[in-house]
Amino acid sequence: MSVAELLKKRISVRAFSDSPVTAQQVLDLLETARWSPSGGNLQPWKVVVVSGAERLAVERLAMQALSRNPGGEAGDHPIYPQGLAEPYRTRRYRIGEDLYELMGIPREDKAARLRAVARNYQLFGAPVGLFFVIDRSMGHGQWAHLGMFMQSLALVAEEQGLATCMQEAWAMVRDSLHQHFQLPDNELVYCGMALGYADRSAPVNGLRSERAPVEEFAVLRGFD
């Protein structure tokens, strides 16, 4: 499968089967993804991979942290900026409503929507969770390089028949994860990623989010 095909095929999977993923499979993915672009060859990424009992421990940690503090622990690195402007606000709203519609959850069913959000912290049933760590001293450029590494990993997983969901929701329990993983003070958990085999029968996995047309975001200058 070509890179173009993988890009168009990859989606954020939000329901996984119970098929296991081995440590060797994860290592093989990381072995390829480590060749991602990196400005100055800083390679500003670390990855904590959890499965089995450790995965369950992280899930419990998240639910306990959010029960104590429903507002989360995003701190000085919020997931979205305050006062999200257009067209970004509408795009975010639309993807949320499309997801709830596929899951059959109406707007007025607040309890069901909260249960759906909680699935983030169960890795949507995926057998493996990856947590991406960056040094606090790194700037915006290095955060972008970490994103390229994550994209590479997701595409390699897709090539191998696996599925992923990049999960910034884990930023809501960033401090608790930091303590649990015993990270040094200079390191920061950016986000998580669910990894496993997609449950193709789940309606929520039928969502393919829209993308703006090229003419909406690109300006070509100097061409004949």
Rank of each mutant, 00 (worst) to 15 (best):
S36V: 08
H180W: 12
K46V: 02
G196M: 01
M1S: 15
L188T: 05
R91C: 06
D135I: 04
P20Y: 01
G72K: 03
Y100I: 04
N205P: 05
L7H: 08
E159S: 15
P78R: 09
V214L: 06
I11Y: 02
Q43R: 15
Q179G: 10
S51V: 01
N120L: 02
Y88N: 13
S38N: 08
K9V: 01
V117R: 11
V117T: 12
G72L: 05
L29I: 10
T32D: 09
G104S: 07
L195C: 02
Q151W: 04
P127C: 01
L29Q: 08
E31K: 11
D28H: 08
V128Q: 06
V214Y: 02
E54C: 03
R55K: 11
S176E: 12
D109G: 05
G83L: 07
G206M: 02
F132I: 08
R55C: 05
D199Q: 00
A23N: 11
A171Q: 11
G139Q: 15
R200S: 03
L195P: 00
R91H: 09
Q142C: 07
E158L: 13
L130A: 14
E215W: 00
S209F: 00
S12K: 00
Q24K: 12
M103I: 02
S67E: 14
Q151C: 14
R174P: 10
D98F: 02
D28M: 03
I11E: 09
